[in-house]
Design a protein around this nucleic acid. Sequence first.
DNA 1: GCCCAAGGTTACACCGAGGGCAAGTTTGCA
DNA 2: TGCAAACTTGCCCTCGGTGTAACCTTGGGC
Lengths: 201, 201
Amino acid sequence: MSSGSAGGIRERKKHETREALHRAALSLYLAQGPDAVTISDICEAAGVSRRTFFNYFESKDDAVMDWNEERAGGSVAERIAARPDQEEPLEAVHQAVRTGIVRLLEHETWRQRQLLVSRHPRLVPLAFAGNRRTRGLMAEAVARRIGAEPGDRYPRVLAAAANAVAQAALAQWDPEDSGAALLEILDASFAMAAAGFSPPS
Amino acid sequence: MSSGSAGGIRERKKHETREALHRAALSLYLAQGPDAVTISDICEAAGVSRRTFFNYFESKDDAVMDWNEERAGGSVAERIAARPDQEEPLEAVHQAVRTGIVRLLEHETWRQRQLLVSRHPRLVPLAFAGNRRTRGLMAEAVARRIGAEPGDRYPRVLAAAANAVAQAALAQWDPEDSGAALLEILDASFAMAAAGFSPPS
DNA sequence: GCCCAAGGTTACACCGAGGGCAAGTTTGCA
DNA sequence: TGCAAACTTGCCCTCGGTGTAACCTTGGGC
Protein backbone atom coordinates (compact mmCIF):
# COMPACT_ATOMS: atom_id res chain seq x y z
CA MET A 1 0.00 0.00 0.00
CA SER A 2 1.24 3.49 -0.82
CA SER A 3 -0.92 4.72 2.10
CA GLY A 4 -1.69 8.34 2.95
CA SER A 5 0.67 11.01 4.18
CA ALA A 6 -0.21 10.82 7.88
CA GLY A 7 -1.06 7.55 9.61
CA GLY A 8 -2.59 4.70 7.64
CA ILE A 9 -5.68 3.95 5.68
CA ARG A 10 -7.78 4.26 8.79
CA GLU A 11 -6.85 7.89 9.42
CA ARG A 12 -7.27 8.80 5.82
CA LYS A 13 -10.70 7.19 5.57
CA LYS A 14 -11.89 8.93 8.69
CA HIS A 15 -10.81 12.23 7.30
CA GLU A 16 -12.46 11.51 3.97
CA THR A 17 -15.71 10.52 5.61
CA ARG A 18 -15.74 13.67 7.74
CA GLU A 19 -14.97 15.82 4.75
CA ALA A 20 -17.64 14.08 2.64
CA LEU A 21 -20.26 14.69 5.31
CA HIS A 22 -19.21 18.30 5.69
CA ARG A 23 -19.32 18.98 1.96
CA ALA A 24 -22.62 17.20 1.52
CA ALA A 25 -24.15 19.15 4.38
CA LEU A 26 -22.86 22.48 3.12
CA SER A 27 -24.05 22.03 -0.43
CA LEU A 28 -27.44 20.70 0.62
CA TYR A 29 -27.88 23.62 2.99
CA LEU A 30 -27.03 26.03 0.20
CA ALA A 31 -29.27 24.28 -2.30
CA GLN A 32 -32.35 23.66 -0.18
CA GLY A 33 -32.09 25.85 2.90
CA PRO A 34 -31.25 24.58 6.39
CA ASP A 35 -34.71 23.44 7.44
CA ALA A 36 -35.39 21.36 4.35
CA VAL A 37 -32.30 19.20 4.89
CA THR A 38 -32.47 16.11 7.07
CA ILE A 39 -29.56 14.19 8.44
CA SER A 40 -30.64 11.23 6.35
CA ASP A 41 -30.32 13.37 3.23
CA ILE A 42 -26.77 14.30 4.18
CA CYS A 43 -25.88 10.66 4.86
CA GLU A 44 -27.30 9.53 1.56
CA ALA A 45 -25.31 12.20 -0.29
CA ALA A 46 -22.14 11.21 1.57
CA GLY A 47 -22.73 7.48 1.26
CA VAL A 48 -22.68 6.55 4.93
CA SER A 49 -25.27 5.40 7.41
CA ARG A 50 -27.22 7.77 9.60
CA ARG A 51 -25.63 6.28 12.65
CA THR A 52 -22.14 6.95 11.35
CA PHE A 53 -23.02 10.61 10.98
CA PHE A 54 -23.25 10.85 14.74
CA ASN A 55 -19.80 9.36 15.14
CA TYR A 56 -18.48 12.57 13.62
CA PHE A 57 -20.94 15.33 14.44
CA GLU A 58 -23.48 16.10 17.11
CA SER A 59 -25.94 17.80 14.81
CA LYS A 60 -26.37 18.78 11.20
CA ASP A 61 -25.45 22.37 12.00
CA ASP A 62 -22.28 21.06 13.55
CA ALA A 63 -21.43 19.33 10.29
CA VAL A 64 -22.08 22.42 8.20
CA MET A 65 -20.02 24.68 10.43
CA ASP A 66 -17.12 22.27 10.76
CA TRP A 67 -13.94 24.24 11.20
CA ASN A 68 -10.92 22.14 10.36
CA GLU A 69 -9.91 24.78 7.82
CA GLU A 70 -9.62 27.47 10.45
CA ARG A 71 -6.81 25.56 12.07
CA ALA A 72 -5.01 25.75 8.74
CA GLY A 73 -4.20 29.33 9.67
CA GLY A 74 -2.98 29.10 13.22
CA SER A 75 -4.88 30.57 16.17
CA VAL A 76 -5.71 34.21 16.79
CA ALA A 77 -3.94 34.01 20.13
CA GLU A 78 -0.68 33.03 18.45
CA ARG A 79 -1.00 35.84 15.98
CA ILE A 80 -1.61 38.35 18.76
CA ALA A 81 1.48 37.13 20.58
CA ALA A 82 3.48 37.53 17.37
CA ARG A 83 2.70 41.24 17.02
CA PRO A 84 5.44 43.75 17.95
CA ASP A 85 5.66 44.56 21.64
CA GLN A 86 5.18 48.30 21.42
CA GLU A 87 1.89 47.93 19.51
CA GLU A 88 -1.23 48.97 21.39
CA PRO A 89 -3.38 45.97 22.41
CA LEU A 90 -6.36 46.94 20.27
CA GLU A 91 -4.18 47.38 17.22
CA ALA A 92 -2.46 44.06 17.84
CA VAL A 93 -5.82 42.32 18.00
CA HIS A 94 -6.96 44.15 14.90
CA GLN A 95 -3.95 43.00 12.90
CA ALA A 96 -4.21 39.44 14.24
CA VAL A 97 -7.84 39.23 13.21
CA ARG A 98 -7.00 40.81 9.88
CA THR A 99 -4.39 38.26 8.88
CA GLY A 100 -6.72 35.50 10.06
CA ILE A 101 -9.39 36.76 7.71
CA VAL A 102 -6.90 37.08 4.86
CA ARG A 103 -6.15 33.39 5.26
CA LEU A 104 -9.80 32.41 5.52
CA LEU A 105 -10.61 34.31 2.36
CA GLU A 106 -8.43 31.88 0.45
CA HIS A 107 -10.66 28.95 1.35
CA GLU A 108 -13.56 28.50 -1.00
CA THR A 109 -15.55 26.54 1.59
CA TRP A 110 -15.24 29.40 4.03
CA ARG A 111 -16.70 31.77 1.49
CA GLN A 112 -19.53 29.36 0.84
CA ARG A 113 -20.17 29.27 4.55
CA GLN A 114 -20.38 33.04 4.72
CA LEU A 115 -22.75 33.05 1.78
CA LEU A 116 -24.93 30.51 3.51
CA VAL A 117 -24.95 32.51 6.73
CA SER A 118 -25.77 35.76 4.96
CA ARG A 119 -28.67 34.08 3.22
CA HIS A 120 -30.01 32.45 6.38
CA PRO A 121 -29.69 34.78 9.37
CA ARG A 122 -30.93 31.99 11.62
CA LEU A 123 -27.44 30.50 11.28
CA VAL A 124 -25.54 33.57 12.50
CA PRO A 125 -25.26 32.39 16.11
CA LEU A 126 -23.97 29.03 14.91
CA ALA A 127 -21.29 30.62 12.78
CA PHE A 128 -19.96 32.23 15.92
CA ALA A 129 -20.58 29.32 18.26
CA GLY A 130 -16.87 28.72 18.59
CA ASN A 131 -16.37 32.31 19.61
CA ARG A 132 -16.65 31.81 23.33
CA ARG A 133 -13.43 29.85 23.25
CA THR A 134 -11.83 32.24 20.79
CA ARG A 135 -12.75 35.18 22.97
CA GLY A 136 -11.20 33.49 25.98
CA LEU A 137 -7.95 32.84 24.11
CA MET A 138 -7.91 36.40 22.84
CA ALA A 139 -8.34 37.74 26.36
CA GLU A 140 -5.49 35.54 27.57
CA ALA A 141 -3.21 36.72 24.79
CA VAL A 142 -4.02 40.35 25.52
CA ALA A 143 -3.47 39.83 29.24
CA ARG A 144 -0.07 38.30 28.58
CA ARG A 145 0.89 41.29 26.43
CA ILE A 146 0.21 43.87 29.12
CA GLY A 147 1.18 41.71 32.09
CA ALA A 148 -2.33 41.36 33.50
CA GLU A 149 -4.24 38.34 34.76
CA PRO A 150 -6.34 36.55 32.13
CA GLY A 151 -9.44 37.11 34.26
CA ASP A 152 -8.93 40.86 34.52
CA ARG A 153 -11.56 43.21 33.24
CA TYR A 154 -9.59 44.98 30.54
CA PRO A 155 -8.58 41.93 28.49
CA ARG A 156 -12.05 40.50 28.64
CA VAL A 157 -13.81 43.66 27.61
CA LEU A 158 -11.34 44.25 24.83
CA ALA A 159 -11.72 40.72 23.52
CA ALA A 160 -15.51 40.94 23.60
CA ALA A 161 -15.58 44.28 21.83
CA ALA A 162 -13.00 43.31 19.21
CA ASN A 163 -14.95 40.18 18.45
CA ALA A 164 -18.15 42.15 18.08
CA VAL A 165 -16.47 44.66 15.79
CA ALA A 166 -15.17 41.84 13.62
CA GLN A 167 -18.62 40.23 13.51
CA ALA A 168 -20.23 43.51 12.58
CA ALA A 169 -17.72 43.94 9.77
CA LEU A 170 -18.45 40.45 8.47
CA ALA A 171 -22.18 41.10 8.64
CA GLN A 172 -21.80 44.22 6.52
CA TRP A 173 -19.84 42.40 3.87
CA ASP A 174 -21.50 40.79 0.91
CA PRO A 175 -19.73 37.42 0.45
CA GLU A 176 -20.06 37.81 -3.30
CA ASP A 177 -17.91 40.93 -3.10
CA SER A 178 -14.12 40.92 -3.15
CA GLY A 179 -12.04 40.04 -0.12
CA ALA A 180 -10.48 43.48 -0.30
CA ALA A 181 -13.87 45.01 0.40
CA LEU A 182 -14.15 42.99 3.60
CA LEU A 183 -10.71 44.14 4.74
CA GLU A 184 -11.65 47.76 4.12
CA ILE A 185 -14.77 47.39 6.22
CA LEU A 186 -12.80 45.67 8.92
CA ASP A 187 -10.12 48.37 9.10
CA ALA A 188 -12.70 51.15 9.17
CA SER A 189 -14.61 49.40 11.94
CA PHE A 190 -11.53 48.92 14.11
CA ALA A 191 -10.62 52.56 13.51
CA MET A 192 -13.96 53.52 15.05
CA ALA A 193 -13.16 51.47 18.12
CA ALA A 194 -9.71 53.03 18.40
CA ALA A 195 -11.31 56.46 18.26
CA GLY A 196 -13.53 55.62 21.22
CA PHE A 197 -16.54 55.56 18.90
CA SER A 198 -16.62 59.32 18.63
CA PRO A 199 -19.03 60.10 15.81
CA PRO A 200 -17.60 60.49 12.29
CA SER A 201 -17.41 64.02 10.97
CA MET B 1 -67.00 38.72 38.32
CA SER B 2 -64.35 41.08 39.58
CA SER B 3 -62.35 39.97 36.51
CA GLY B 4 -58.80 40.90 35.60
CA SER B 5 -57.54 44.33 34.67
CA ALA B 6 -57.50 43.82 30.90
CA GLY B 7 -59.98 41.80 28.86
CA GLY B 8 -61.96 38.89 30.30
CA ILE B 9 -61.35 35.55 31.88
CA ARG B 10 -59.91 34.23 28.64
CA GLU B 11 -57.10 36.76 28.51
CA ARG B 12 -56.30 36.31 32.15
CA LYS B 13 -56.15 32.54 31.89
CA LYS B 14 -53.85 32.70 28.91
CA HIS B 15 -51.52 34.97 30.80
CA GLU B 16 -51.61 32.72 33.86
CA THR B 17 -50.84 29.64 31.82
CA ARG B 18 -47.91 31.34 30.11
CA GLU B 19 -46.58 32.56 33.43
CA ALA B 20 -47.04 29.13 35.03
CA LEU B 21 -45.08 27.47 32.25
CA HIS B 22 -42.35 30.07 32.44
CA ARG B 23 -41.99 29.74 36.21
CA ALA B 24 -42.07 25.96 36.10
CA ALA B 25 -39.42 25.91 33.40
CA LEU B 26 -37.18 28.35 35.22
CA SER B 27 -37.31 26.58 38.56
CA LEU B 28 -36.84 23.15 37.03
CA TYR B 29 -33.87 24.42 35.05
CA LEU B 30 -32.36 25.84 38.22
CA ALA B 31 -33.05 22.71 40.24
CA GLN B 32 -32.00 20.02 37.78
CA GLY B 33 -29.95 21.70 35.09
CA PRO B 34 -31.16 22.35 31.54
CA ASP B 35 -30.49 18.93 30.06
CA ALA B 36 -32.27 16.96 32.74
CA VAL B 37 -35.55 18.80 32.19
CA THR B 38 -38.01 17.56 29.58
CA ILE B 39 -40.96 19.48 28.22
CA SER B 40 -43.23 16.89 29.78
CA ASP B 41 -41.75 17.71 33.19
CA ILE B 42 -42.50 21.38 32.71
CA CYS B 43 -46.05 20.63 31.62
CA GLU B 44 -46.66 18.39 34.59
CA ALA B 45 -45.39 21.08 36.95
CA ALA B 46 -47.55 23.70 35.28
CA GLY B 47 -50.58 21.46 35.02
CA VAL B 48 -51.14 21.60 31.28
CA SER B 49 -50.78 19.18 28.41
CA ARG B 50 -47.64 18.83 26.37
CA ARG B 51 -49.45 20.09 23.29
CA THR B 52 -50.57 23.23 25.05
CA PHE B 53 -46.97 24.04 25.84
CA PHE B 54 -46.32 24.48 22.15
CA ASN B 55 -49.23 26.91 21.85
CA TYR B 56 -47.13 29.30 23.91
CA PHE B 57 -43.49 28.50 23.25
CA GLU B 58 -41.42 26.99 20.50
CA SER B 59 -38.96 25.22 22.77
CA LYS B 60 -38.19 24.75 26.42
CA ASP B 61 -35.38 27.28 26.21
CA ASP B 62 -37.86 29.74 24.79
CA ALA B 63 -40.05 29.24 27.86
CA VAL B 64 -37.18 29.76 30.28
CA MET B 65 -35.94 32.87 28.57
CA ASP B 66 -39.38 34.44 28.18
CA TRP B 67 -39.05 38.18 28.24
CA ASN B 68 -42.33 39.82 29.09
CA GLU B 69 -40.64 41.49 32.03
CA GLU B 70 -38.17 43.29 29.78
CA ARG B 71 -41.00 45.20 28.21
CA ALA B 72 -41.89 46.44 31.67
CA GLY B 73 -38.97 48.83 31.27
CA GLY B 74 -39.46 50.30 27.82
CA SER B 75 -37.07 49.64 24.97
CA VAL B 76 -33.40 50.59 24.77
CA ALA B 77 -34.11 52.51 21.60
CA GLU B 78 -36.59 54.76 23.39
CA ARG B 79 -34.15 55.38 26.18
CA ILE B 80 -31.41 56.30 23.71
CA ALA B 81 -33.75 58.76 22.01
CA ALA B 82 -34.56 60.28 25.40
CA ARG B 83 -30.95 61.18 26.19
CA PRO B 84 -29.88 64.83 25.83
CA ASP B 85 -28.96 65.89 22.30
CA GLN B 86 -25.43 67.06 22.98
CA GLU B 87 -24.42 63.73 24.58
CA GLU B 88 -21.95 61.66 22.57
CA PRO B 89 -23.55 58.57 20.97
CA LEU B 90 -21.52 56.06 22.97
CA GLU B 91 -22.35 57.78 26.23
CA ALA B 92 -26.03 57.94 25.32
CA VAL B 93 -26.06 54.21 24.64
CA HIS B 94 -24.17 53.58 27.87
CA GLN B 95 -26.71 55.48 29.93
CA ALA B 96 -29.64 53.89 28.12
CA VAL B 97 -28.28 50.42 28.80
CA ARG B 98 -27.54 51.41 32.38
CA THR B 99 -31.07 52.47 33.23
CA GLY B 100 -32.37 49.37 31.53
CA ILE B 101 -30.23 47.24 33.79
CA VAL B 102 -31.29 49.19 36.84
CA ARG B 103 -34.90 48.28 36.04
CA LEU B 104 -34.11 44.66 35.31
CA LEU B 105 -32.30 44.35 38.63
CA GLU B 106 -35.61 44.97 40.38
CA HIS B 107 -37.11 41.82 38.89
CA GLU B 108 -36.42 38.71 40.89
CA THR B 109 -37.05 36.44 37.91
CA TRP B 110 -34.44 38.30 35.90
CA ARG B 111 -31.88 37.73 38.63
CA GLN B 112 -32.80 34.05 38.69
CA ARG B 113 -32.29 33.96 34.97
CA GLN B 114 -28.85 35.45 35.29
CA LEU B 115 -28.00 32.96 37.99
CA LEU B 116 -29.11 30.15 35.75
CA VAL B 117 -27.05 31.44 32.85
CA SER B 118 -23.95 31.93 34.97
CA ARG B 119 -24.25 28.36 36.21
CA HIS B 120 -24.82 26.89 32.76
CA PRO B 121 -22.65 28.62 30.15
CA ARG B 122 -24.37 26.59 27.45
CA LEU B 123 -27.29 28.98 27.87
CA VAL B 124 -25.36 32.18 27.27
CA PRO B 125 -26.22 32.40 23.57
CA LEU B 126 -29.89 31.90 24.41
CA ALA B 127 -29.88 34.69 26.94
CA PHE B 128 -28.82 37.00 24.18
CA ALA B 129 -30.90 35.44 21.43
CA GLY B 130 -33.13 38.50 21.32
CA ASN B 131 -30.09 40.67 20.82
CA ARG B 132 -30.09 40.66 17.08
CA ARG B 133 -33.31 42.65 17.17
CA THR B 134 -32.08 44.82 20.04
CA ARG B 135 -28.87 45.59 18.20
CA GLY B 136 -30.84 46.62 15.14
CA LEU B 137 -33.01 48.98 17.17
CA MET B 138 -29.96 50.39 18.90
CA ALA B 139 -28.30 51.06 15.56
CA GLU B 140 -31.44 52.80 14.32
CA ALA B 141 -31.65 54.97 17.40
CA VAL B 142 -28.00 55.94 17.12
CA ALA B 143 -28.41 56.69 13.42
CA ARG B 144 -31.35 58.97 14.14
CA ARG B 145 -29.30 60.83 16.74
CA ILE B 146 -26.49 61.74 14.37
CA GLY B 147 -28.59 62.03 11.24
CA ALA B 148 -27.21 58.95 9.52
CA GLU B 149 -28.92 56.09 7.71
CA PRO B 150 -29.78 53.07 9.90
CA GLY B 151 -27.71 50.86 7.63
CA ASP B 152 -24.59 53.00 7.89
CA ARG B 153 -21.42 51.54 9.23
CA TYR B 154 -20.94 53.69 12.31
CA PRO B 155 -24.28 52.99 14.01
CA ARG B 156 -23.97 49.28 13.39
CA VAL B 157 -20.45 48.97 14.67
CA LEU B 158 -21.28 51.07 17.70
CA ALA B 159 -24.36 49.00 18.49
CA ALA B 160 -22.45 45.74 18.13
CA ALA B 161 -19.60 46.91 20.32
CA ALA B 162 -21.84 48.42 22.99
CA ASN B 163 -23.79 45.22 23.16
CA ALA B 164 -20.63 43.18 23.53
CA VAL B 165 -19.35 45.47 26.26
CA ALA B 166 -22.63 45.11 28.15
CA GLN B 167 -22.51 41.34 27.74
CA ALA B 168 -18.94 41.21 28.99
CA ALA B 169 -19.93 43.24 32.02
CA LEU B 170 -22.80 40.89 32.77
CA ALA B 171 -20.53 37.89 32.39
CA GLN B 172 -18.10 39.30 34.91
CA TRP B 173 -20.83 39.90 37.46
CA ASP B 174 -21.76 37.31 40.04
CA PRO B 175 -25.58 37.37 40.18
CA GLU B 176 -25.41 36.75 43.91
CA ASP B 177 -23.59 40.06 44.30
CA SER B 178 -25.32 43.40 44.65
CA GLY B 179 -26.77 45.27 41.72
CA ALA B 180 -24.43 48.14 42.51
CA ALA B 181 -21.48 45.88 41.73
CA LEU B 182 -22.90 45.19 38.27
CA LEU B 183 -23.33 48.89 37.58
CA GLU B 184 -19.74 49.57 38.60
CA ILE B 185 -18.48 46.90 36.22
CA LEU B 186 -20.69 48.26 33.48
CA ASP B 187 -19.47 51.84 33.90
CA ALA B 188 -15.83 50.79 33.99
CA SER B 189 -16.30 48.69 30.86
CA PHE B 190 -17.92 51.50 28.90
CA ALA B 191 -15.15 53.83 30.05
CA MET B 192 -12.67 51.48 28.38
CA ALA B 193 -14.60 51.70 25.14
CA ALA B 194 -14.75 55.50 25.34
CA ALA B 195 -10.97 55.56 25.82
CA GLY B 196 -10.49 53.63 22.61
CA PHE B 197 -9.38 50.61 24.63
CA SER B 198 -6.02 52.14 25.42
CA PRO B 199 -4.47 49.97 28.12
CA PRO B 200 -5.07 50.94 31.77
CA SER B 201 -2.10 52.47 33.57
C1' DG C 1 -81.88 31.03 30.59
C1' DC C 2 -80.55 28.99 25.89
C1' DC C 3 -77.74 28.41 22.25
C1' DC C 4 -74.19 29.17 19.04
C1' DA C 5 -69.69 30.67 17.44
C1' DA C 6 -64.92 31.73 18.54
C1' DG C 7 -61.10 30.34 20.60
C1' DG C 8 -58.32 27.56 23.81
C1' DT C 9 -57.07 22.78 25.37
C1' DT C 10 -56.39 18.09 24.73
C1' DA C 11 -55.35 13.35 22.80
C1' DC C 12 -53.44 11.12 19.02
C1' DA C 13 -50.40 10.28 15.44
C1' DC C 14 -46.36 11.24 13.04
C1' DC C 15 -41.50 12.62 11.75
C1' DG C 16 -36.80 13.97 12.72
C1' DA C 17 -32.92 14.53 16.13
C1' DG C 18 -29.94 12.18 18.88
C1' DG C 19 -27.82 8.39 21.40
C1' DG C 20 -26.98 3.36 23.61
C1' DC C 21 -25.91 -1.12 22.36
C1' DA C 22 -24.24 -5.14 20.19
C1' DA C 23 -23.13 -7.43 15.99
C1' DG C 24 -20.50 -7.10 11.78
C1' DT C 25 -16.58 -5.43 9.13
C1' DT C 26 -12.14 -3.44 8.16
C1' DT C 27 -7.40 -2.22 9.48
C1' DG C 28 -2.95 -2.72 11.87
C1' DC C 29 0.19 -5.54 13.83
C1' DA C 30 2.47 -9.71 15.48
C1' DT D 1 -2.34 -16.14 9.06
C1' DG D 2 -4.71 -14.66 13.02
C1' DC D 3 -6.04 -11.61 16.60
C1' DA D 4 -7.18 -7.13 18.73
C1' DA D 5 -8.48 -2.51 18.09
C1' DA D 6 -11.22 0.60 15.75
C1' DC D 7 -14.80 1.94 12.61
C1' DT D 8 -19.50 1.11 10.64
C1' DT D 9 -24.01 -0.33 10.81
C1' DG D 10 -28.79 -1.72 12.14
C1' DC D 11 -31.99 -1.81 15.78
C1' DC D 12 -34.41 0.36 19.26
C1' DC D 13 -35.54 3.88 22.30
C1' DT D 14 -36.61 8.70 24.10
C1' DC D 15 -37.48 13.44 23.38
C1' DG D 16 -38.49 17.60 20.52
C1' DG D 17 -41.73 19.58 17.66
C1' DT D 18 -46.03 19.91 14.63
C1' DG D 19 -50.67 18.82 12.12
C1' DT D 20 -55.27 17.36 12.93
C1' DA D 21 -59.51 16.76 14.82
C1' DA D 22 -62.35 16.27 18.88
C1' DC D 23 -63.57 18.56 23.09
C1' DC D 24 -64.42 22.16 26.46
C1' DT D 25 -64.87 26.97 27.96
C1' DT D 26 -66.04 31.67 27.26
C1' DG D 27 -68.80 35.44 25.73
C1' DG D 28 -72.36 37.48 23.18
C1' DG D 29 -77.04 37.41 20.88
C1' DC D 30 -81.72 36.05 21.28
